[in-house]
Simulated scan of single mutants.
Amino acid sequence: MPADEQQVPSVWARPRPQRRDHPALSRQQIVSAALQLLDTEGIDALSMRKLGTRLNAGATSMYTHVANKDELLELVVDEVYGEVEVPATGDPDGWRTAITGCAHSLRTTILRHPWIVSVLGETGLAYLGPNVMRLMEKMLAVFEEGGFGLQEADQAMNTVVAYVVGISTSEAATLTALARSGQSEQEWTQRLLPAAEEAARDHPRLRRLYAGQRGRRVREDRDDGFRLGLECVLEGVTARLTSTG
């Protein structure tokens, strides 16, 4: 088959299998079981064989719906994105509040499923999934309602999502390490600070920053930092809208 006729390698780019009268296993059952496995045991635990054992199903039943593990991950990533909320707004001036709510929902969703950050860049055409498409459509509508042209709305949406995913990736990695250590976030940070201060002894600004973190509430600081960064991003987006309006 010529290269330009080859099927796009994505579960979303091929016809869905024909439904049988009494299917032994549904796509949703497979996705739900995979999501539960990922949430409880992490990305390294996911395999088609292990998933089949959980479902008490043979490989044939699963491969009817997904060709391989990559396709399975596309489905599960889209399932996770279905949890992200975009607050409705009927007010052109309410776009910023709505996008702020969506950004917080996206961050919360990623931190609820921290394994996802390790596969976001490896899930093929996951953005073709129905939940991702609905999320993007709603965000674009909010930006357009606020006065952005479609191309500017797309740029603004991508900027906000990139910020949230970037921050959440770092947070998810920390929370995953904490889960393995058995320590609380507060305990882990306070135990790390002496080593950080020692490493920063020749860097006065970093040394002052680390010294100022003693006794601070780590979770609250992390939440405050996210809010402040998001405000900065939205200030920039707003300035762009004003300059091109």
Rank of each mutant, 00 (worst) to 15 (best):
Q183T: 07
A141S: 11
D202C: 07
A24T: 11
T89S: 15
L206H: 09
D44P: 06
R49I: 08
P114Y: 00
R54G: 02
L38Y: 00
G225V: 01
H203R: 12
E197V: 12
G147A: 07
F143E: 07
P87N: 03
E71H: 10
V119W: 08
L178T: 04
R216W: 01
R49S: 12
I167L: 13
G124D: 03
S184V: 10
N131E: 09
D4K: 12
R27H: 10
V86F: 09
A156C: 08
V8T: 10
V8H: 06
R208P: 04
L135D: 01
R216G: 01
A24E: 15
P87G: 08
L193K: 02
E231N: 12
E197M: 15
A59D: 14
Y210G: 03
G182Y: 13
A153C: 04
T123Y: 02
R54D: 06
L228G: 04
V237Y: 04
V11N: 02
E83G: 07
A141I: 04
K69W: 09
L193V: 03
G166C: 06
R112N: 14
V84H: 03
N68V: 09
Q183F: 11
A57K: 04
A33V: 08
L241F: 09
V117P: 02
D4Y: 15
A239Y: 08
G94E: 07
L228R: 13
E187H: 10
A153N: 06
V31M: 09
L135V: 04
K69D: 06
M157F: 06
V11A: 11
D221K: 07
S184M: 08
D21E: 14
R240G: 15
P17R: 05
T242S: 11
L75E: 10
A173D: 03
S32W: 04
S184H: 08
A141V: 03
L128C: 08
R207W: 13
S118T: 11
C102S: 12
R19N: 11
L228C: 04
G245C: 10
V11M: 14
V119S: 08
M62D: 04
T159A: 14
G121V: 02
P204I: 06
R20V: 07
D91G: 01
T89N: 03
M133V: 09
D21V: 13
L120M: 15
R14V: 12
P92M: 03
P130W: 07
A34Q: 02
D91H: 03
G236C: 06
L150F: 09
E235F: 10
D154M: 12
A173L: 14
L175T: 00
L46H: 11
N68S: 14
E79T: 05
D154N: 10
L37F: 05
Q6E: 15
E235T: 14
G94A: 15
V132Q: 09
G58A: 10
E85I: 15
S105H: 04
T242G: 06
L111M: 10
R54T: 06
K69H: 08
L72I: 11
H104G: 01
R219D: 12
G182M: 13
G129M: 07
R222L: 13
L51V: 03
E187D: 14
W95F: 05
Y63Q: 14
E197W: 02
Y210R: 00
L192W: 04
M133E: 10
V117M: 09
A13R: 09
F143C: 05
T176K: 04
R191W: 03
V237P: 07
P130V: 04
A67Q: 12
